[in-house]
């Protein structure tokens, strides 16, 4: 079996992150499980607002006070959910790195790039001398194509793409064992994007870094990830080997997502009908059933159970059983009008 299952460096089980403890919470992450092994890259895809960034932050314990977190996040065998704040904080940086989605505002406008690096390294590697801190910082920046002459400059003197590269260098200089990269290349042009994907690949090869790569771009997943997890409305609906999963998607949502991807062979633009559901009051049972072209009666009544699809991936969809759990007549196609009326009654 693959590395992620024997001895995962990151093991997330049944993680829930609900925003807003009073009233109606936003169930941004709702019972998510996955593992990442050393040197492995897991791609995380899904529509905007489905909870990808929340999941990434949840791994680092970087959520606002108003967010309720349950379940388990194990890093190298250590439980992080409910661990003392100071303990988790010490892991952030040298063990768990995070590259944020939006680079423009992530650097302190009053401080030079140098000050950012000094702060990060002094925090986690206080034994390093001034010269060594400088050497490592410049090396990390050079790796991202930022010349050393700009070390003393302020954030506003850099473009968005450069800031993102600085942010990445700032995460990498601490050599994290697990790196959460939240759409790290969205703000960048394709050449820099390729360069960054190359750097992530090097990390994986040379330092055995485990990477959770959040992206909208299925092309990136195919190219850069060993495995992929597809997220819909706070849940992972399908997860498995990237190549196999793309060749033989088991979940209707994954299929729609692939169909919606523009490629050279596409003749028209495909889009998934309907809008992503509310996370405050998500559809009951299978959350995709209001938009699913294959929806059956059972889909509106019972939450799907995770099974192994023929190609080997985990999938939560009644199309793949388990047969014994589907009530009689449950395989009949779902009549949407019937559902709408039932809802009103």
């Amino acid at each position: 079996m693959s590395a992620h299952e024997d001895d995962p460096i990151l093991d997330v089980r049944d993680l829930r992150v609900w925003y807003g403890t009073g009233g109606d919470p936003v169930r941004a992450v709702d019972g998510v499980s996955f593992q990442i092994g050393r040197g492995e890259t897991l791609g995380l895809v899904g529509e905007s607002g489905c909870g990808k960034s929340t999941l990434g932050r949840g791994v680092l314990g970087l959520l606002p006070d108003a967010a309720a977190v349950t379940g388990s996040v194990r890093f190298d065998g250590r439980e992080l959910v409910g661990a003392p704040a100071a303990e988790v904080r010490d892991l952030r940086g040298p063990e768990l790195g995070l590259i944020f989605q939006e680079p423009m505002t992530r650097l302190d406008p009053l401080q030079t790039i140098e000050a950012h690096f000094r702060e990060a390294l002094n925090t986690h590697r206080p034994e390093l001398g001034k010269e060594e801190v400088r050497r490592r910082s410049l090396e990390a920046l050079a790796g991202m194509g930022i010349p050393r002459t700009r070390f003393g400059q302020y954030p506003h003197e850099f473009s968005g793409g450069m800031r993102q590269r600085i942010m990445i260098a700032l995460a990498l200089v601490l050599e994290p064992k697990v790196l959460v990269a939240d759409e790290p290349t969205t703000a960048l042009d394709v050449i820099v994007e390729a360069q960054i994907l190359g750097i992530l690949a090097d990390l994986r090869r040379n330092f055995d870094t485990a990477i959770l790569l959040v992206t909208h771009n299925l092309g990136i997943v195919a190219e850069a990830c060993n495995r992929v997890a597809v997220m819909y409305a706070g849940e992972i609906v399908e997860e498995g080997d990237a190549r196999e999963l793309f060749a033989e998607p088991a979940h209707p949502y994954t299929r729609e997502l692939l169909r919606a991807t523009i490629s050279l062979e596409t003749t028209g633009l495909n889009y998934i009908p309907g809008a992503p559901p509310s996370l405050i009051d998500p559809p009951p049972a299978c959350r995709f059933h209001p938009r699913c072209p294959s929806a059956m009666r059972v889909c509106a009544d019972l939450h799907p159970i995770e099974v192994r699809a023929p190609a080997g991936q985990r999938v939560s969809c009644w199309l793949h059983g388990p047969e014994g759990q589907i009530p009689a007549g449950g395989r009949e196609p779902l009549e949407r009008r019937e559902f709408a009326e039932a809802e009103e009654a």
Binding site: L62, R92, L107
Partner: peptide, 29 residues
């Protein structure tokens, strides 16, 4: 609540340092 403050936390900078070096200084501008 600033983005750079969250980013500093994500690098494991201690809360005291985050507040003094980033939040206070920017608040005083």
């Amino acid at each position: 609540r600033g983005d750079y403050v969250e980013a500093a936390r994500a690098r494991g900078v201690s809360e005291r340092r985050v507040v003094i070096n980033h939040a206070f200084r920017n608040a005083m501008v």
